[in-house]
């Protein structure tokens, strides 16, 4: 698995997200209040809303378009809604963040 460096954890506000541009589309990288980080496709399973723009609470994000709540840990919709987005492996080394490129190409497949 190839890891690509994407920046520092401090580039993302706590309870916030930033985007990574890739040929296969946008990846949303989240940082929770407790400094846990997650990466998922920036594409709500409901109508494709940009999850990176949602409100981050606990280890979940609420989509800004129609309020679906997506688990950052599993990528699955929580509550009554059904659907899932792909999660992308991410690791923190010191301050630096890396995502798994292999997962990216899976994305495209």
């Amino acid at each position: 698995m190839t890891w690509a460096m994407i920046g520092r954890i401090t580039d993302i506000p706590r309870r916030g997200a930033r985007c990574i541009e890739t040929p296969q589309g946008k990846i949303a990288v989240f940082r929770t209040a407790e400094d846990r980080v997650f990466a998922i496709e920036d594409h709500c399973p409901h109508k494709g809303g940009p999850l990176s723009q949602g409100i981050v609470h606990g280890a979940a994000v609420t989509c800004p378009l129609h309020n679906w709540v997506i688990s950052l840990e599993t990528g699955k919709a929580l509550g009554a809604d059904e659907g899932a987005v792909r999660t992308i492996p991410i690791k923190v080394e010191g301050e630096m963040l890396f995502i798994a490129l292999a997962a990216l190409s899976d994305c495209a497949a």
Binding site: A4, M5, I6, G7, D11, I12, P13, R18, C19, I20, E21, T22, P23, Q24, K26, V29, L101, L104
Partner: peptide, 10 residues
């Protein structure tokens, strides 16, 4: 930070 991607890869 709101208006720029964090990184562009690939």
């Amino acid at each position: 930070h709101e208006f720029k991607p964090m990184a562009t890869i690939g």
